[in-house]
Measured scan of single mutants.
Amino acid sequence: MQIFVKTLTGKTITLEVEPSDTIENVKAKIQDKEGIPPDQQRLIFAGKQLEDGRTLSDYNIQKDSTLHLVLR
């Protein structure tokens, strides 16, 4: 499925993911596309910070959802 990741600069990254993918996995995909190390990434969805060990389906993230990427 496709999800979107919006950065603070207003750029939107499109990712191909599975509901069973972990947040860690998603961060690795963002690193592949953007070169941002996962340890600098914070992903936010519906006002919640997403934890590495959980999956997209744990957070009820569905296709065409938009996550927000904050760098630390």
Rank of each mutant, 00 (worst) to 15 (best):
R72Q: 10
N60A: 13
A28Y: 04
M1S: 10
D58L: 08
V5G: 01
Q40P: 05
L50A: 02
Q41L: 06
G47Q: 03
N60K: 14
Q31I: 11
L50K: 00
Y59H: 04
I44M: 14
K11R: 09
Q41Y: 09
G10A: 03
F45R: 02
T9S: 09
L56G: 00
R54E: 12
A28Q: 15
P37A: 13
Q62Y: 07
L15I: 14
G53V: 08
L15H: 01
N60Y: 08
I44W: 13
K33H: 11
M1F: 09
K29I: 04
K63T: 09
E51T: 03
P19M: 06
I3Q: 00
P37N: 10
P37F: 08
A28E: 07
L50W: 01
Q49F: 03
F4M: 11
D58Q: 08
V5N: 00
I44A: 15
I61W: 01
D21G: 11
Q31K: 10
T12W: 08
L71W: 12
T12G: 10
T9M: 15
L50T: 07
K29V: 07
T12E: 07
R54L: 02
T9H: 07
S57L: 06
K48Q: 09
K27F: 12
P38L: 13
Q2K: 07
Y59P: 00
A28H: 05
D64V: 02
I3F: 02
Q41A: 03
E24K: 06
I44Y: 06
P38E: 14
V26M: 06
G47H: 04
E51V: 02
Q2H: 12
D58H: 06
L56K: 00
D52W: 04
S57Y: 04
T66A: 15
K33L: 09
I23A: 06
R54K: 11
A28P: 01
R72Y: 15
L71T: 11
K33T: 11
V70I: 04
P19A: 12
I36W: 07
Q49H: 13
I13K: 01
K48H: 12
L15R: 00
G10T: 08
L43W: 02
I36Y: 06
Q41G: 10
I61S: 01
S57F: 08
K33Y: 07
D32F: 15
R42L: 07
P19E: 09
L69K: 00
E16Y: 05
E24Q: 03
I3M: 12
Y59I: 05
T12F: 11
A46E: 14
D21F: 15
S20Y: 09
K11M: 08
L15T: 02
D21P: 00
G35Q: 11
G47R: 10
L43F: 10
K33G: 11
R72K: 08
K33E: 01
E51R: 02
Q31T: 05
V26A: 13
I3D: 00
K29M: 08
Q2L: 10
G35A: 13
Q41T: 14
K48D: 14
L15F: 13
Q40N: 06
M1Y: 05
R54I: 13
T9A: 13
F4R: 02
S65A: 15
V70M: 11
Q41F: 10
M1W: 03
V26P: 00
I36L: 05
T66F: 03
P38G: 12
K27M: 13
R54P: 15
N25Q: 15
E34K: 01
G10E: 14
V70R: 13
S57R: 10
E51A: 04
I30P: 00
T7W: 15
A28L: 02
T14G: 15
P19S: 07
D52Y: 04
A46V: 12
M1D: 05
V5I: 09
R72L: 15
N25G: 03
D58W: 06
R42Q: 15
D21M: 04
I44G: 02
Q41W: 13
T22Y: 09
I23W: 02
G35E: 15
E51F: 02
R42I: 07
M1A: 02
T66M: 08
F45W: 05
K29H: 03
I23K: 01
T14H: 07
E51M: 04
E24S: 12
T12K: 01
A46G: 13
P37D: 03
I3N: 00
L71H: 07
T22I: 06
N25S: 15
P37I: 15
L56N: 01
Q31G: 06
L15W: 01
S20D: 10
L8I: 08
F45L: 09
E34F: 04
T9R: 05
T22P: 04
S57K: 12
V17F: 05
D39G: 12
P19N: 06
Y59G: 01
P37M: 07
G53W: 07
I23P: 07
K11H: 04
L8A: 15
L8T: 14
L50I: 09
V70A: 07
L8S: 14
F4S: 14
D21W: 02
K33I: 11
R42G: 13
I13R: 03
K48S: 13
E24R: 02
I23T: 15
S65V: 14
R72P: 15
V70P: 02
T14D: 14
P19Y: 03
K29W: 03
P37Y: 11
D32M: 15
E16Q: 11
Q62V: 11
V17L: 09
Q49W: 05
V5T: 02
A28F: 09
S20I: 12
I36H: 06
D32N: 03
S65H: 02
L67F: 06
I3L: 07
F45G: 04
T14W: 06
F45I: 03
T22K: 06
G53M: 07
V70Q: 15
H68I: 14
I36R: 07
L50S: 01
H68K: 07
L56Y: 01
K6F: 08
E18A: 15
L69W: 05
I61K: 00
G10W: 02
K33R: 14
